[in-house]
């Protein structure tokens, strides 16, 4: 079995895995980082979104071996102690989550989105969240949260 080594949330990790192990399963099963969720099997819903090399990808659509040597950040790696990342804080302030299942992927995607472009219109935010499906919120408060999170991130 191949050995994979990567840095996850700042910590070096390594493990022997079957080549067919998806990155998301490596995170969930091997590292017990269960904050990253699996909501579909066609790479549509985005619940599994993490950052690899600083960019948002769908961890259910990447093999763990493909991430060998990479820097990976998951939802567990965002907050500093009890201090939430501004985007997490914005989701809480604006009720941008209900059941919480799509939330980790949504937050990771939103951070990546606002990093790529600072000042986003509502339409740009909606288009930018195309790869993340939420069934609870109707997106209304997610859009508000991303707007606020973008402003707060800029202010940081």
């Amino acid at each position: 079995m191949p050995t994979v080594k990567m840095t996850v949330n700042g910590k070096p990790v390594s493990a022997e895995v079957e080549a067919r192990t998806l990155l998301v399963h490596f995170l969930r099963e091997h590292l017990d980082l269960t904050g990253t969720h699996v909501g579909c099997d066609t790479a549509q819903c985005g619940a599994c979104t993490v950052h690899v090399g600083g960019k948002a990808v769908k961890s259910c659509n990447m093999l763990a071996v493909q991430a060998d040597g990479a820097e990976v950040t998951t939802i567990e790696g965002l907050a500093t102690g009890d201090t939430l990342h501004p985007m997490q804080e914005a989701f809480r302030d604006h009720h941008g989550l209900q059941c919480g299942f799509c939330t980790p992927g949504m937050v990771m995607s939103a951070i990546d989105l606002v990093k790529r472009k600072a000042d986003l219109s509502e339409a740009e935010i909606r288009a930018g969240l195309e790869g993340n499906i939420c069934r609870c919120t109707g997106y209304h408060n997610i859009v508000k949260a991303v707007q606020a999170g973008a402003a707060a991130t800029r202010g940081r």
Partner: peptide, 8 residues
């Protein structure tokens, strides 16, 4: 929200 937002 804290637990959901932090993956817990």
């Amino acid at each position: 929200d804290f637990r959901f937002l932090t993956g817990q």
